[in-house]
Amino acid sequence: MFTIDLTVRNTPFPISVQRKTAEDAEAVYQLILAAMSSGKPEIVELKCEGKTERKIAVRASEISGVQVTQKDSATTASGRPPGFFALTSE
């Protein structure tokens, strides 16, 4: 199972959907990238394959990041999968 996590501006937690195959996860990833780079305030609607009742809709211009992880992928010492990392200069 693959999880696609969306980081949305001004939202403290990611939005996630699941896909069963790597090809389906890559297709969703490319769809989100295309919507983000279009520059238009279009709505991206996604449905979850793992929990079929889960649906989300988010404005593409508000998505600040997207990542794809495999459910059984390597985890860090904290037990969490690798994710986004940001550096700030002071």
Results as ranks from 00 to 15, higher is better:
Phe2Trp: 14
Thr3Ala: 13
Ile4Tyr: 07
Asp5Met: 07
Leu6Glu: 02
Thr7Ser: 15
Thr7Gly: 12
Val8Gln: 05
Val8Pro: 07
Val8Ala: 08
Asn10Lys: 07
Thr11Ile: 13
Pro12Tyr: 06
Pro12Ala: 06
Pro12Glu: 10
Pro12His: 01
Phe13Met: 04
Pro14Trp: 12
Pro14Ile: 11
Val17Met: 07
Val17Ile: 15
Val17Thr: 09
Gln18Ser: 15
Lys20Gly: 02
Lys20Ser: 11
Thr21Tyr: 01
Ala22Asp: 12
Ala22Trp: 04
Asp24Gly: 08
Ala25Gly: 08
Glu26Leu: 08
Glu26Met: 06
Glu26Ser: 13
Glu26Lys: 11
Ala27Ile: 00
Ala27Asp: 03
Tyr29Phe: 15
Gln30Asn: 07
Gln30Ser: 05
Gln30Arg: 10
Leu31Asn: 10
Ile32Tyr: 05
Ile32Gln: 05
Ala34Ile: 00
Ala35Gly: 05
Met36Leu: 04
Gly39Leu: 04
Gly39Pro: 01
Lys40Ile: 01
Pro41Ala: 10
Pro41Ile: 02
Pro41Ser: 14
Glu42Gln: 12
Ile43Gly: 00
Val44Lys: 01
Glu45Leu: 00
Leu46Lys: 02
Lys47Met: 04
Lys47Gln: 13
Cys48Met: 01
Glu49Ala: 06
Gly50Tyr: 00
Lys51Gly: 02
Lys51Ser: 11
Lys51Phe: 03
Glu53Ile: 03
Arg54Met: 02
Arg54Leu: 11
Arg54Tyr: 14
Lys55Tyr: 03
Ala60Ser: 09
Ala60Glu: 00
Glu62Cys: 04
Ile63His: 03
Ser64Ala: 06
Gly65Arg: 10
Val66Arg: 08
Val66Asp: 06
Thr69Val: 14
Thr69Phe: 03
Gln70Trp: 05
Gln70Met: 00
Asp72Val: 00
Ser73Tyr: 05
Ala74Phe: 06
Thr76Cys: 11
Ala77Gly: 08
Ser78Lys: 11
Ser78Gln: 06
Ser78Ile: 00
Pro81Leu: 14
Pro81Ser: 08
Pro82Cys: 08
Phe84Trp: 14
Phe84Ala: 04
Phe85Lys: 14
Phe85His: 14
Phe85Arg: 14
Ala86Cys: 07
Leu87Thr: 02
Leu87Ile: 08
Thr88Ala: 06
Ser89Val: 13
Glu90Gln: 08
Glu90Pro: 09
